[in-house]
Amino acid sequence: MNVRPRIFFGFDFAVVILVCLVTASSGAAQAKNPYAGDAKVAKLGEFEFRANCAFCHGLGARGGGRGPDLTRTPKKHGDSDADIFNTINNGVPGTAMPPNGATQQGVGMTEEELWQVVTYIRSVEKKASTVSGDANHGRELYYGSAACGTCHMFKGKGGRLGPDLTGAGTARSTEYLTESLRKPSRRLAQGIIEAMKEFTEEYETVNVVTNDGTKYQGTLLNEDSFTIQFMDMREQVHSFDKASLKSLQKSRESLMPAYDEKVLPDKDLQDVLAFLVGGGQGGVK
């Protein structure tokens, strides 16, 4: 195998839709999984999963830096076997979830293999949802004292410095979300929970001093060898030729403050998570 794209990831997707149509030709699957509950088939599905999916969804489908925890139920994009089949075959447009055959890592799966993967996902699912907080209170915190909303959009409302969190509750595991809050610098967001760009950039912190001495701090939007684009704390977008700057520093120290237990006690943290995972439902009265 030879390729794993990072930048311009989305670029390869357009073509490969062709591929997926032919690999598992029926765009809409038959309604029933012919292998439902078959442990041997689930094992075959695990091979496929390791090769094609674990790259984003992690080993054991427990969620990785780039894809949600798939052991969780119910599934956001439909919870029947046929729904899951279709999600895998068609991808989730506008997100990093690629259509069948488009990952550039594995190869397109046949219909039979797709059912094997569905069977595997079913075999590792855990029924109970783990978040038990008060989503209403979570919403109050989000837009109130915890001030998440000053930096994060949620369903069209909020700031822009950090990633839009509308999809975060379903795209990320609760462990991941917890870590993002407690230790934001441990692993910087990669922009995959937002509408898919043709490239991915991490939310690195940028400190710039221009030739006339003006200082900016912000999050990286994009950069190449010669130029840099970033958003400053006042949500202004800048682009500079690197050679024209007095200084340019990038750091992996997140601009998000660490919310330790003093600032956001466990109970409140659970409430914020409940708000995010519930897709804001609980909070909208």
Binding site: L44, A54, F55, L59, R66, Q105, T110, R187, L188
Partner: peptide, 25 residues
């Protein structure tokens, strides 16, 4: 890099598992 047993099936991907990006980036 991970590894796992995988039976051979002609014309089907045959990797014996997969690799993942290094989280520390």
């Amino acid at each position: 890099f991970s590894t796992a047993p995988q039976p051979y099936d002609a014309g089907h991907a045959y990797y014996g598992s997969a690799y993942f990006p290094n989280d520390d980036a």
